[in-house]
Structures are given as structure tokens and as C-alpha cells.
Design a protein around this nucleic acid. Sequence first.
DNA 1: ATGAATGCAAAGGTTTTGCACCCCC
DNA 2: GGGGGTGCAAAACCTTTGCATTCAT
Lengths: 188, 188
Amino acid sequence: MNGGASRSPKTAQLYPCGRSSRHSRGTESAAKFEEWRARLRKHIAGQGLKYTEQRWKIASLILSSGGHLDAQELVARVKRKHPGIGAATVYRNIKILCDASILNESLVDSQGRAIYEVFDEAHHDHIVCLDCGGIFEFHDPKLESLQDSAAESIGFEPVRHRHIVYARCKYKAKRSSSLNEGIERTRL
Amino acid sequence: MNGGASRSPKTAQLYPCGRSSRHSRGTESAAKFEEWRARLRKHIAGQGLKYTEQRWKIASLILSSGGHLDAQELVARVKRKHPGIGAATVYRNIKILCDASILNESLVDSQGRAIYEVFDEAHHDHIVCLDCGGIFEFHDPKLESLQDSAAESIGFEPVRHRHIVYARCKYKAKRSSSLNEGIERTRL
DNA sequence: ATGAATGCAAAGGTTTTGCACCCCC
DNA sequence: GGGGGTGCAAAACCTTTGCATTCAT
């Protein structure tokens, strides 16, 4: 599916269209990793849970891949890197990592699969590319406020939202290679 | 889940908050039904498929319920009304009805379930109420164009999108009952 | 030590598929 | 009459759960 896209984090050009699959958060630095680990420990302490090797292995795998992945993909990667860890453990930990605000579910896949990504304080929306399968991010405050007032004007109190644009990149990528730098995460 | 919400199409007040589950398209007239049937026949003819009793029974059940339902809910209703029709037939026909532009999938459920609705030429987005489970519709051209230019400005050609706002209705419904009329489908 | 976490396997639930029979065109 | 369609049951899939065991605190 979106399979091999984020396999080699060192390579820049991963999608057919020439875009990189890595976005601004991509592979985290060692310092960042410790921050995440601290967050996990803190959450775990507050919940009467326990810090296990498997739990952190799963978390770091997500953090180092950095991108957008569904449960199956995560299970597969864990199995690949840590054959000892069972699928049930991965599933159990996905929930815990979400609770700990390390993972975040943002349902974006064009087949309707739940996609997880590293938790990000800053909200963003998604563009799913129909040409290359890549998932990109964007954020537009104008859009957000317009959307909120739309909901409010008809009597709702907006809580959260999911805004996904399915789009094509090919035709543009062909014409303007200058677009290929630094646009994986865009704020307007 | 959102289960009983659209059971009795005659009743106006269905959701806890006092909103109706019926939106502008609701239960179709006999003439409308014939239009849909013609559309089905046309699609079927062009595809080398065949018009069967079951196929139309499934289609009309969707058309007469008019609302938003997931695959399981549809299977259940078909089974209830036409016990002879098997689940596999329903699943097989969901695809065909989508191809025929009679059904339309718009993933909106807060649990990530695929929700189907009667196909509508006029695009609209959704509000999923976290209080009552209801699914409502809205449309704002400003939002649409802003979103399209956002995608275009970063090199994508927008094709379609899914914009779902999860929101609460309770607090407003309490205060302003005048909002409860005619807002199931709102164009701004 | 004690309760949580794990791995395995079995169970669950939903959707798809294989196949013999049926029926629309 | 032939190819698609149907119903049933089996298979496939993904995720959850039960349980004995291991491990963190």
C-alpha cells in the first residue's frame, strides 16, 4: 500500500513524484527521544502502569519512522525489527501510546484505514496524494476559523475535526521541481 | 450505536437534542424513485451487469431510509426487511451502487466506520455530533475554495476531500430551540 | 510479592470468496 | 443458452481476549 515509503530514513527522494516522505518532525534527535521517553514514563507512572522494554521499543520505532502508519504496518515493522514482540502487544500499546499523547490517530487513508502519527501539539490537516500514496500535512488558520464559525452558526460547538484533501501531485511535480523542497509540512 | 436514530421516518424529533435525523433528501418521492431506478438501469446496462430484484430492493431500502448508514447497519436492515437476501449480496451491491452513483461513501463515523449515504450531486461536508451521535450536513463555498487554494498553493491538484467536524449540539439545543427547525442540511 | 505486561493461541467480528444453482437479457 | 447474480458456507482478515508465565517496582 503506502508500504516501502518510509523504509530508508536517510534517502530524501522516496515518492514517485519526487517528494520526500519525511515531514518536519521526521526522525527525532537523541534529545527529543529522551523527551518522549520522559513523557512515556510520566504517563505510565500516573496510571499505575509499568515501563517495559517492549513498550519503549514500539514507541521508539514509531518515533524514528516519524511518518504516518496504520496498525498493520506498525505490527509488521515491529515484527521485522523485534521478532520477539507479539502482535497483541503492539495493539495493546498503540492505545497506551495514544493515551500518553505520543501517538495520535488521524484517520486519513484513502481506504479508510486508521492512520497513526507521532503526536503533534500543533494541529494540522492532511493531504493524501492519489498519485503517490504519500500523506502530507498542511495548516491554514483561516480555514480553521471559517470551519468553526460554520459549525457554530448552525448551533454546534466544534470539538475536533478531520480535514483530508485527496489530491494529485504528479502533474505539478513534473512542471515545477522547485516545489519539492521543504513542503512536506506547510503552514499557510 | 447510532442505531435507532433513523428507524421511524415519520417522527420528527429523533435525537436527544431535539434535532431531526432527516435531512433535505430524506425519504424520496415515487417520481424520484423512478429516477434512481433509471439511473441504476443505465449504469447496469453500460457495464454488462444485470438488473435483479435483490439489487433494486437493496437500493430502494437505502433510498427510503435516506440517512447515513454503515455497511453493517445496511446488512441488518436488508435482513430485517428481506430475510432471503444474504449478506454477501448486500456487500457486493454496495460497491455496484457506489459505482452507479446511487450510494456514496463518506467516512464520517467517530469510530472510523465507513458511512454510506444516498448520492448527492451537491457536495457537502459533515458534522458528527458527539452528544447525540447524529450526522448532519453543511456546505460553505468559501471553505471549499480556501481549501482548494491551500492544496494548490503547495503543489497539489485537489480531487475530493473529506471534511468532518466533530461537535456538540447539547449546549446550544438547550438554549435555543429555534435552531431546531430546518438545519439538518445547511448551506452557508 | 504483587499486579501489570507479555506471548501465544484461540476467539470475535466483519468482509470476501468459492461454488452450485438460478435467472435476467 | 450464457454469463452475471445469488445464497450459503467457508475462508480471509484484522483485532481483541484468555491464560499461563515473566517482569517491573
